[in-house]
Design a protein around this nucleic acid. Structure first.
Lengths: 114, 114
DNA sequence: CCCAATGCGCAACCTTTTGTTGCGTTGTGT
DNA sequence: ACACAACGCAACAAAAGGTTGCGCATTGGG
């Protein structure tokens, strides 16, 4: 019931800037800290730190090509993250469903009393 | 393309402690800061701060009953949050699908050259 | 009725995360 | 060869997440 979730992975995609970075990397296939920072409202250094976080949880991998450090998304790990989003989403969904049914039955009872 | 997401809402559910709090509130129907903190690895004060965050984004609402401050989940807003999780999840999913197809076609081209 | 216990809010403080600026190092391409 | 582009590292600031300590209201059992 306590939703088997990798907190580090969740927290990684919990940050708005990091989510946008993943979007950009997915759109372009790969990217560098400098390139990404040009399309984000933060500095290159901030982007570099976020890339380090994403790298630590395995959501991206880096390759050094000359003076460039090129990052790309790890599809397996992103798929894992998506699976966890869906898992939590459907867990909450079913809770909400249950609450709705209970609420209806209570209303039923109340109506009986009136 | 830039995934219409309410960053505040997402960040609210991005925190592991807050996610567990939502789980507990859903399981019990409602709860107080003190009650929740007994089942979490943090102090009452930390829980109170998290409840304030959740309240600010509308994920929970509080009712004062005597000396107790009782919180319950706002089903509508949680449903919104779930919808956003699903939205981002499927956006990434379709990206991954596309990448997979491209990778296959590249491999095809490479095989042609060999 | 009363007072000890319960629940809460507020403030001070600490650590980690997120962001900045500044600077030095190292490949790149004319 | 050398100006430039891309990077890493360090020092710093602000916000987030957590703690302890305190005082104030409500409440329930003697």
């Amino acid at each position: 019931m306590s939703t088997l979730v990798d907190d580090d992975l969740w927290s990684a995609v919990g940050d708005p800037t990091r989510r946008r970075m993943i979007d950009l990397l997915l759109a372009d296939g790969s990217g560098t800290a400098t390139g990404l920072s040009e399309r984000l409202p933060v500095t290159r250094q901030a982007v570099a730190k976020h890339l380090a976080v994403l790298d630590r949880v395995g959501l991206v991998h880096a390759g050094t090509a000359g003076r460039e450090r090129r990052y790309r998304v790890d599809e397996r790990q992103l798929a894992r993250a998506v699976a966890q989003l869906n898992a939590v989403g459907s867990a909450w969904d079913s809770r909400l469903e249950r609450i709705k049914r209970i609420a209806e039955s209570i209303q039923q009872t109340t109506e009986d009393k009136e």
